Simulated assay, not measured.
Amino acid sequence: MEAKKYNLEVSNHDFTVKSYWLDQVEDFNQTVDYPIVVICPGGGFTFHSAREEEPVALRFNSFGMHAVVLEYKLIDQETVYPTALQELAKTIDWINKQPASRHIDKKRIILAGFSAGGNLVATYNGIGTDEKLRQKYQIDHLTGEHAGIILGYPAIDLTVKGSFPNDDKVLHEISNDPTFWKAQDLLNKNSKPAFVWQTRTDELVNVINSLTYVEKMTQLGLEAEYHMFGSGIHGLVFGTYVTQKPGKDKYLNAWTSKWIELALNWLQMMKLLG
């Protein structure tokens, strides 16, 4: 496996992606093109959670997938959107233009997002699959498309009271454009299949977020698998010692840790892996 950082640029904004490229397995006696996952970590649009970066990338590597972590735009002097959306589109374009020697199955690009990163992925699953919106937000010139998404405790509807961001100031720092406030409303018949999981007791992002998204996908006849676990805090990642904050047992949750194996099964069922 080769780990490498790249600096990319879109709309006069520089951003970083971290790649985890799989090596070929000599015992196979033939080359294999691997699926690839683009990981968008959470952090409330104020930082990128390292707990949702390399540990997640390496786990997907173990499934036989290349992995890329996108360090998308955060809150600063300019709003997060549409720049973050453009960065994700550029990352997919960059993957699509990788040489054949990288052995990427470019028809099986998966987007995985957690919390705020889940908002980005869920939003892209709508705008990125809508020709008119791609043109409106200036990503229509970028190539490649994703095949499915994985969402972990995603922020979907930014207007839900008592849920992230629960602050009009922060909401407008994320975007002044109401188009970006409700990711569920962006879904369309061309949106890609989704695997979604969250805990019922999530104290930061109300579980109505993921329920609303999956409900809209169901209404549109889109493929979706949803798991609502009965208990657990926000930001569990794996719920194991691998992503546990030192000394904080609340980040351990053996039951919710099963989501990653469920996601593996879903990827295989959707013929996006294996």
Results as ranks from 00 to 15, higher is better:
His141Met: 06
Gly126Trp: 08
Lys132Arg: 09
Leu133Cys: 10
Thr143Phe: 07
Lys192Ile: 12
Glu203Trp: 10
Lys136Gly: 00
Val205Glu: 00
Thr143Gly: 06
Glu173Asp: 13
Asp177Ile: 04
Lys182Pro: 03
Asn166Ala: 14
Ser191Ala: 05
Thr159Asp: 05
Glu131Phe: 02
Gly148Asn: 10
Val207Leu: 01
Leu187His: 07
Gly148Asp: 09
Val205Phe: 05
Gln135Ala: 13
Thr201Gln: 10
Val207Pro: 01
Glu173Ala: 12
Leu151Lys: 13
Thr143Trp: 07
Pro165Ile: 10
Asp157Cys: 06
Ala194Cys: 12
Leu204Gln: 06
Phe180Gly: 05
Ile174Val: 15
Thr159His: 05
Ile174Lys: 01
Lys169Ala: 11
Asp185Gln: 10
Arg200Glu: 13
Thr159Ser: 13
Gly118Lys: 04
Val160Arg: 03
Asn176Ala: 04
Val121Thr: 14
Ser163Arg: 14
Leu158Cys: 07
Thr201Arg: 13
Asp177Phe: 09
Leu133Pro: 04
Ala155Thr: 06
Pro193Asn: 06
Lys136Ile: 00
Gly126Asn: 11
Asp177Leu: 11
His172Trp: 05
His141Ser: 15
Thr179Glu: 13
Thr179Ala: 10
Gly144Gln: 02
Gly162Arg: 06
Lys189Gly: 03
Thr201Pro: 04
Gly144Pro: 01
Lys161His: 07
Ile150Leu: 14
Asp177Lys: 06
Leu158Arg: 00
Gln184Arg: 12
Thr159Tyr: 03
Ile149Tyr: 01
Glu145Met: 08
Ile139Met: 10
Gly152Arg: 04
Lys192Trp: 04
Asp185Gly: 03
Val170Ala: 07
Asn119Leu: 08
Asp140Gln: 13
Thr199Leu: 08
Thr199Tyr: 02
Arg134Gln: 15
Asn206Gln: 15
Asp167Thr: 08
Gly152Ile: 03
His146Glu: 04
Ala147Ile: 03
His146Asp: 06
Tyr124Phe: 15
Asp140Val: 10
Gln198His: 13
Gln135Phe: 05
Leu187Gln: 12
Leu171His: 02
Leu120Phe: 02
Lys161Pro: 03
Thr143Glu: 14
Gly118Tyr: 04
His172Cys: 07
Pro154Cys: 09
Gly148Tyr: 06
Leu158Asn: 02
Thr143Tyr: 06
Phe164Cys: 00
Arg134Tyr: 01
Pro193Tyr: 09
Phe164Val: 00
Lys169Asp: 09
Gly162Lys: 07
His141Trp: 08
Ser175Cys: 09
Asp130Pro: 00
Gly144Leu: 02
Gln135His: 12
Lys189Met: 10
Ile139Trp: 03
Trp181Ser: 04
Lys161Ile: 13
Gln138Cys: 01
Thr179Gly: 09
Pro178Thr: 01
Leu186Met: 12
Glu173Ser: 14
Ser175Trp: 11
Ala194Thr: 15
His172Val: 07
Ile150Glu: 01
Asp177Gly: 07
Pro154His: 03
Leu120Gln: 13
Ile149Cys: 10
Leu142Ile: 04
Thr129Asp: 08
Arg134Asn: 07
Ala122Lys: 10
Trp197Ala: 00
Glu145Ile: 06
Phe195Asn: 01
Pro178Gly: 13
Asn190Met: 07
Thr159Ala: 09
Ala183Gly: 13
Ile139Val: 12
Ala147Ser: 14
